[in-house]
Amino acid sequence: MSTPMVEVRSVHKSFGSLDVLRGIDLDVRAGEVTVVLGPSGSGKSTLLRTINHLEKVDSGSITVDGTLIGYRRESKASARRASGKGGGRRPGRLYELREREVLRQRTRIGFVFQNFNLFPHLTVLDNVVEAPVAALKRPRKDAVAAARKLLARVGLADKADAYPRQLSGGQQQRVAIARALALEPKLLLFDEPTSALDPELVGEVLDVIKDLAASGTTMIVVTHEIGFAREVADAVVFMDGGVIVEQGPPAEVLDAPRHERTRAFLSRGVGSPRLPGPEK
């Protein structure tokens, strides 16, 4: 088996005195869909945000496609100096990257937000064109052509000249997905992509994500949609209290959970309707 697309190693993160992530280890294989489930405040959104360095980790490391995110390992000289003391994996040092380098890394990772975060003053087309032109220095003409194809792919070819506010929530989220895809990322991260939507609009967004899954895009999806996890996920991760309680194929985690906390969450989540309101 090749190295995973995403490797998360003993990641810790706290906000003040609140420990949000308490030692996360996670592998995501290329071409697979990983669904992260868990109650509010379990740290699942924070974990997702550390993967494209929107949140800095306090300790631990995250690698995407073999590239360390947000940091660089110590230089060769200092590594040589440190060698000799004990073999194998040394803790070593991680040096924070300059913002420019972090931004370049982010262009390889697409991120879809719960609240879409489309740019309201730009048309749908300009929302999608912005990043390829600004961050990848693509010629505008090429970026526009690619953007129109992406909009067609999410079923919004006719909305290119509309402003985001003129679209429904489901349409806005589909534009946001097209915008993330415009950078041709190796990895797509979804932070509760349907939680801000009216129930009748959830389906159209999940359909687009399912379509991407079928085309072999590597994705991590934080969601409350257990049905979606069952249908699409290659792996399901259940988080609670800043740790991964259980992970494995959906058939194991969803249908035969080994941990009491997973069972409790699933029985609550499936049986009762979702609580309204965004979760942070």
Binding site: N52, L54, E99, R100, L103, R104, R106, T107, I109, G110, F111, F113, N115, N117, L118, F119, E130, A131, A134, A135, L136, R179, A180, L183
Partner: peptide, 12 residues
Amino acid sequence: GQIEAAQSLGLG
């Protein structure tokens, strides 16, 4: 969220 979206798209 607007700034985060721009950051996630790699805008300087």
